Amino acid sequence: MRRILFFMFALSLAVSCSAAHADGIVKRVQKAVAISTLDRPGTHPFHLKAMLAPSLDRDKDSGRTGLVEIWWKSPTEWRREVSCPGFHQVQIISGGQTWQKNDGDYFPNWLREITDALMLPVPLSADLYKQMDSGEVKQLPGRTLVRNGQETHTIGMTHLSWTILSSNGEVQKGMGASIALNDQTGLLLYGGGFGWSGEFHDYQEFHKRQVARTVSGGSPEVTAKIIILEDLHAVQNGWFTAGADGDPYSIQIEFPDELDLRKNLLPQDPTPWPPTKDGPLEGVLTTEVSIDRTGAVRETGTIVSDNQSLNDAARTRIEAMRFKPFVLNGAPVQVLSRITLAFKTVRPDTPVAQ
Rank of each mutant, 00 (worst) to 15 (best):
I4W: 04
F6Y: 10
M8T: 10
S16F: 12
S16H: 12
D23G: 08
G24H: 14
G24S: 13
I25W: 01
V26N: 03
K31G: 00
A32I: 05
V33Y: 05
I35Y: 00
T43H: 00
L48H: 07
S55Q: 14
L56P: 00
L56A: 09
D57A: 08
R58P: 01
D61I: 07
G63M: 03
G63S: 02
L67S: 11
K73F: 02
S74G: 01
T76D: 14
R79G: 09
R79E: 11
E81R: 14
C84H: 01
Q91T: 15
I92Y: 04
I93L: 10
G96W: 09
Q97W: 04
N102G: 00
P108L: 06
W110E: 01
A117M: 00
L120I: 15
L124A: 07
L128F: 13
M132L: 15
S134N: 15
K138A: 10
Q139L: 12
P141S: 06
L145F: 08
E151K: 15
G156W: 00
T163N: 09
L165E: 14
Q172R: 13
A177E: 07
N182E: 01
Q184C: 09
Q184A: 15
T185F: 11
L188G: 03
L189M: 15
G191Y: 03
D202I: 08
K208I: 07
V211W: 08
R213H: 14
T214M: 03
V215F: 04
V222P: 07
A224E: 05
L229M: 03
L232W: 11
A234M: 09
Q236V: 12
N237A: 15
F240W: 13
F240P: 12
T241N: 12
D245S: 07
P248Q: 02
I251N: 00
Q252N: 13
D260A: 12
L261Q: 00
R262P: 08
G283K: 13
V284H: 08
E288D: 14
V289A: 10
R293L: 06
G295C: 07
E299L: 03
I303C: 00
S305F: 09
N311H: 05
A314L: 08
T316Y: 04
I318P: 13
E319K: 15
F323W: 04
P325T: 07
V327Q: 02
N329H: 13
P332E: 04
Q334C: 03
S337I: 01
L341Y: 06
K344P: 05
P348K: 03
